[in-house]
């Protein structure tokens, strides 16, 4: 079931991006920018790395994924639908009253969602709890936690980082979607956030820095993390907010805005052209 072909994984990431745009357009709300920036990461995790089975979403020994940046739910939903956790048609209900696909992920409503998230800064602590449980039970599963770069301004992230290091959670891999933008602008201008690598280093993490849109680099990064013993890893993934859609790329305004009909059509056309035939 594990997909190893780079082109295939890139195409899945492209499908995820199309799913993101369709959801946000249909809902006329949601967060496209940060969803698009993490599509390649999700493709590699769900289709190449994680030990999971959509037919058995609550299996005890499965790997876990916590979307700490919960507003990027369209990316997670598109990934889960693509993986087969639920019918792709359900994506049309995103953010609508009759749907289970809430604005932010709800583990009680959606199969495959391992943790309810939305209030920023809390996911890494949850991932630490999951990783500790795996260690206590000798279950052997790994825990992945996707953080936004803006999100790590929350102090609780660093509390959790301390715990991850204290308990030597080598079964935990955090990923920072380092797209440099948050709602109010550049993360450095808004909050003075810099030296992300050095910060995680100081907290005792194994650091792996990659191009977050390079499938091969992502696969290698997660493999390195998997084999690193005695300390947690963080993959600092350099990404582009709004990746894949020309007019959304590197624009903070697309953090939480839906495209109009024209923009939607252009976005879908651009993404379809990025599909690799082979």
């Amino acid at each position: 079931m594990k997909i190893t072909k780079i082109e295939a994984l890139a195409n899945i990431a492209n499908d995820i991006r199309i799913g993101i745009i369709e959801q946000v357009y249909n809902a006329n709300s949601g967060h496209p920018g940060g969803s698009l920036s993490c599509a390649d990461i999700l493709s590699v995790l769900y289709f190449n790395q994680m030990n999971i089975d959509p037919k058995n979403p609550n299996a005890r020994e499965r790997d876990r994924f916590v979307l700490s940046k919960g507003h990027c739910s369209p990316a997670l939903y598109a990934t889960l639908a693509r993986k087969g956790y639920f019918n792709k048609e359900l994506l049309k209900g995103f953010r609508k009253i009759e749907s289970n696909l809430q604005g932010h992920p709800d583990m009680k409503k959606v199969p495959g969602v391992d943790m309810t998230t939305g209030s920023l800064g809390q996911g890494l602590s949850v991932a630490v709890g999951m990783a500790i449980s795996s260690k206590i039970n000798h279950d052997g599963y790994r825990v992945y936690c996707l953080l936004g770069d803006g999100e790590i301004q929350e102090g609780q992230i660093w509390e959790a980082a301390m715990s991850a290091s204290k308990y030597k959670l080598d079964n935990l891999c955090a990923i920072v979607d380092y797209n440099h933008l948050q709602i109010d602008g550049n993360i450095e201008n808004v909050a003075g956030l810099k030296y992300i690598r050095e910060k995680f280093e100081a907290f005792g993490f194994n650091i792996i820095e990659v191009d977050g849109h390079n499938i091969q680099e992502l696969i290698e990064a997660f493999n390195i993390a998997k084999h690193k013993k005695g300390l947690p890893s963080v993959v600092i993934a350099h990404t582009i907010k709004g990746k894949g859609i020309s007019f959304m790329e590197e624009k903070a305004e697309w953090h939480g805005k839906a495209p109009n009909k024209e923009e939607y059509e252009q976005a879908i056309n651009e993404l379809k052209l990025q599909h690799i035939i082979g």
């Binding site: 602590s125 709890g129 990783a131 449980s133 795996s134 204290k166």
Partner: peptide
């Protein structure tokens, strides 16, 4: 082996507790 002291980080403690609970603890 079943005791976790997170230091002075109560928000973190609640989050870790959530994570443990999702795994049946």
């Amino acid at each position: 082996e079943r005791f976790i002291d997170v230091g002075i980080s109560e928000q973190n403690m609640m989050g870790i507790a959530s994570g443990l609970a999702t795994c049946g603890k």
